[in-house]
Structure formats: C-alpha cells, structure tokens
C-alpha cells in the first residue's frame, strides 16, 4: 500500500479513537444517540424511494436492451 493510504487509515483510526473517547467523556452512563423524527423519515422514505428507483431503472434498462435485441 502507498504511504497516502496508510496515512488515511491512521487518520481514520485516530478519528474513531477520538470519537470513542469523546462519547466516553460526555456520558458517564451508557451513551446513546437517538435518531430524530426527521432523520427517521429520511431513512424510511429514502429506502422506499430507492427501491422504487431501482425497480424503474431495471425496467428501463430491460426495455432498452429488449428493443435493441441485446438482452443476451
């Protein structure tokens, strides 16, 4: 691996370590981080929209390849 990737990896790990330390400092009991109503809505409807998009894209690709006779 190149030096850059080692650097980025060690950067990432120290970031995680700091984050871990921070959560430890802020909350003496078991820390928690609850997703709010807005975030929850994004997750739920995002997943639903993603599935819809995937279905439409798959059908569109199929239609185009079918028209060109390039399905297989």
């Amino acid at each position: 691996m190149k030096r850059r990737s080692w650097l980025s990896l060690s950067g990432l790990s120290s970031l995680l370590a700091i984050a871990a330390h921070a959560t430890e400092q802020e909350a003496p009991s078991t820390p928690s981080w609850e997703v709010g109503a807005e975030g929850f809505r994004w997750i739920v409807y995002g997943g639903l929209f993603g599935l819809l998009l995937a279905t439409v894209v798959l059908l569109a690709i199929w239609f185009r390849e079918w028209q060109k006779g390039k399905l297989w």
């Binding site: 959560t23 078991t30 820390p31 928690s32 981080w33 609850e34 997703v35 709010g36 109503a37 929850f40 809505r41 739920v44 409807y45 639903l48």
Partner: peptide, 24 residues
C-alpha cells in the same frame, strides 16, 4: 406507511422502544 406515517412510528418508538433508534 400510508396507514402509519413515519412520524407516528417514530413517536411510538421513542415512547416504548427508544433503544431501537439508538445509533450507539
């Protein structure tokens, strides 16, 4: 989700099972 909008679901979860929304 048309029958149970996400805000209702979120509210119910916060009230009864907040741990399910906990990312830690």
């Amino acid at each position: 989700y048309m029958r149970f909008p996400s805000s209702d679901v979120h509210q119910a979860l916060i009230a009864s099972h907040p741990q399910r929304l906990n990312l830690l």
